[in-house]
Amino acid sequence: MIVDELEKKLRPPEMELKPYPPKVIILTSGEKMVVREVKREETGVLLETIYPLMGVMEDFYDIVAVRMYSEVLGWYRYRVANEFIIVGAIDDVIAGIVTSRCVDENIGMSLHTLTVKRGLRIGAQLFAAKMEHHLEFLDQKEVWIVAESPIGFRRWMIEYGLKNAGDCYPEIHHELGGVPTHILTKEIYDAVRDEKVTGTRPVDPEVLATADTLKAPDEYPQIPGFKRSKS
């Protein structure tokens, strides 16, 4: 792709991010979920997955889906700096997506967690994977986090015991909307890691191959009656 001079000026400066090594998690259903970073050429299937959830008001899927759609698109079009996206896929089908980015080499900015397949704590596992990437593979010092739904607040702020940095505004403020920022420090992460983060590495090549060609789900538990057309 030829990038003209003006386009170069529009793009943010990028840090080189280490890749997230894939892992596999056996869910309570016995299904194997491959957790891996997505490639830019997989943007289409991500957008296709997210799009139907933009109309679901329940559990704040609408706001999370709309924002995540823009984050994925922003990443694809080079409008967000240092972003990475991780998916959980079961037999190629996307079960959940997380988005995040690095502010600098020390601070991570957690963006969104969206679970398509519900009831198996997939969101919790993908959020944990996102934190694992920030604090273990990218070796950052802390991650800034906000919640946009009560489920998120319970899962992150309470279950992880995040540090509330609401009093430090505006010195510490998350990019999403100005709501109180919470921080996952390396110290907190190390204290909860063994209860929150799981997954087996390296992934058996045969299992990893089940997530080679990502597919958008045909059905959504959040949208009764939804059937993706097979055009």
Binding site: I25, T28, V197
Partner: peptide
């Protein structure tokens, strides 16, 4: 499944 909730190495977390 038994593997999912008890047997696998991920079971203690999921």
């Amino acid at each position: 499944t038994m593997e999912g909730i008890y047997g696998s190495e991920n079971a203690h977390i999921v």
